[in-house]
Design a protein around this nucleic acid. Structure first.
Lengths: 160, 160
DNA sequence: CCAGAACAGTTGATGCGTCAAGTACCATCT
DNA sequence: AGATGGTACTTGACGCATCAACTGTTCTGG
């Protein structure tokens, strides 16, 4: 561990390198990935919603859980789910147990759409990120980012 | 499932883990970092512009180079630089050599602003990312992301 | 030279994300 | 039962990013 200083605590050289590289990845790779999805009339946040539903039991999730998955506000979810419903990819029903809750369900049409898009999306991710990395680097990346992600989610659970 | 050369090429388990963790980092850490800057009336893209200028010789860069740094469109830069100019953090002058070009220069006021904000920004980055990682993980992250970033920039330079 | 292409930057319209305010429902306590 | 507070979701306004269209400047080939 670095010196637990009282001073501003700058980033050391490794941290600086990692941080700047992360920003480059965000600024270069992400827009391109988004672009491919947008050519098929989906935002990446909507793609994520379809994936979350496809992986859920009964292809169904509460809207608030769906929002939590992607760390997005309920407002944003409400806005972005409209298109998916109008397009017939998702159906939304009131929960019979709790009148406040609504349940989103992936329709067969939505699933087909996801299955059609997934290979294109994965191809982007591979081309932009993983084609540059060997197995060792990929494992190291998964471990480091996984640790950070775990920390972020734990930390979030303590928030009020 | 035979491995024929023309099938979709899914992500293997490590890649899947790395990719999902990266998305979590983006969705959780980045908004929080942005939030701190916004409390001081700066977008993170504007913070990046100030940093780029502070590191440039004469604290000066061409607008188009500034846009290239952050991989943003000239249009976006044009919109976002307005506030910085109006606020006196940056001054913009025509290049005497090339009538098309404008040069952005960080003012002393802008530099003070940056120096005031940097510690807060770094504290966020440390808290959200690097406090979760030991030295080995940080080095691995820097190496892997650095490789990806290098690949992205090289690839970009070949585009036209 | 000069015509066209390429480069540098700006502007305005449109769509998405954020925020504040609102409706509706449920849980708890007295 | 009624009051209070918390949860789930929607809506509309506003700010930022994207895109297309535009002005103005420099470069290039004939």
């Amino acid at each position: 561990m670095a010196s637990r200083g009282d001073e501003p605590q700058w980033l050391d050289e490794q941290q600086q390198r990692a941080w700047r590289a992360l920003l480059v990845v965000l600024n270069r790779a992400m827009p391109e990935i988004e672009r491919t999805l947008k050519e098929h009339d989906l935002l990446s946040i909507q793609y994520g919603m379809l994936v979350a539903l496809a992986e859920a039991p009964e292809s169904t999730r509460r809207l608030s859980d769906l929002a939590e998955d992607a760390n997005m506000s309920q407002s944003r979810l409400s806005h972005r789910i409209r298109d998916l419903v109008e397009n017939g990819d998702i159906e939304v029903d009131n929960d019979t147990d709790d009148g406040r809750v609504k349940l989103a369900r992936l329709t067969p049409k939505g699933r087909r759409r996801l299955e059609r898009l997934a290979p294109l999306h994965v191809a982007d991710v591979r081309r932009l990120l993983f084609d540059h990395l060997d197995e060792r680097q990929t494992a190291a990346l998964a471990e480091a980012l996984g640790t950070v992600a775990g920390g972020l989610c734990d930390h979030d659970e303590f928030r009020t």
